[in-house]
């Protein structure tokens, strides 16, 4: 089950921990993966790690804060893979945290552009072909804070909540063509950022997670793999919360 042989998948933000895990897992299931991100060297390193022989892996760097680059990425990925896109994973995102009363317009706008507008541009470009071909899978990586909110992340939580609403609309637009659009909303994932938390902070955080541990990038990758598989063909417009039980919306 959940095999992806012959499928072409574009993963944005593949240079990050979650993106890399998603790309590695999709490739492991048989997909051809196109890795995108801003850091070419990191992407090249990941590609070599995923497939030392270079089989079924391509690198397509793009700076998604540039609207033209976002618009062009799907076509670039298809050119690199030599085939139309079957799977789009909108994973790229950034944060510009700060309490609202001190948040600059630029912090708001940049997060909106990269975390919400760019995924829209990618969906728009990918959907054109997917609708025509009567098949396709889009999964966007939101966040638990898009559902619960989080002090200091008015911009990020708004963008992630926007991503959820957008995906529901796109799911309705694309449903008649067998194309599904879903969201995965991760909770706290163990990364370099959370590794530096003080013991007391970590204890407090874990106290709010019924499953008693931080998430791993592979926890997210598994959820994505399911949603992009043929087996998930009757699931669309949904948000899969992968958060150890921290929030149960």
């Amino acid at each position: 089950m959940f095999r992806l042989d012959g499928k072409i998948a574009l993963v944005t933000g593949a240079s990050g921990g979650i993106g890399a895990a998603i790309a590695r897992t999709l490739h492991g299931q048989g997909a051809t993966v196109v890795l995108s991100g801003t850091r070419q060297a990191v992407l090249d390193g990941l590609a070599a790690q995923i497939a030392p022989d270079g089989a079924r892996v391509h690198v397509c760097p793009a700076d998604l804060s540039d609207p033209a680059a976002a618009d062009a990425l799907v076509a670039a990925a298809e050119a690199a893979a030599g085939a139309p896109l079957d799977i789009l994973v909108n994973n790229a995102g950034l944060t510009r945290d700060g309490l609202a009363i001190r948040m600059k317009d630029d912090d708001w706008n940049r997060v909106m552009e990269v975390d919400l507008a760019a995924p829209f541009r990618l969906c728009r470009a990918a959907l054109k072909g997917m609708l025509r071909r009567r098949s396709g899978r889009i999964v966007s990586i939101a966040s638990i804070v898009g559902i619960t909110g989080n002090a200091g992340q008015a911009n990020y939580s708004a963008a992630k909540a926007g991503m959820i609403g957008m995906s529901k609309s796109l799911a309705q637009e694309a449903g008649s063509r067998g194309v599904t659009v879903n969201v995965v909303a991760p909770g706290f994932i163990q990364t370099a950022m959370t590794d530096v938390l003080a013991e007391a902070q970590r204890e407090k955080l874990l106290g709010g997670i019924p499953l008693g541990r931080m998430g791993q990038p592979d926890d997210i990758a598994a959820a994505v793999t399911y949603l992009v598989s043929d087996e998930a063909g009757w699931i669309t417009g949904t948000t899969l919360n992968v958060n150890g039980g921290m929030a149960m919306p």
Binding site: K128, L131, R132, E173, S176, R177
Partner: peptide, 10 residues
């Protein structure tokens, strides 16, 4: 359907 008409126009 409505999606077809949009695709046709495009």
């Amino acid at each position: 359907d409505s999606l077809d008409t949009v695709e046709l126009v495009m």
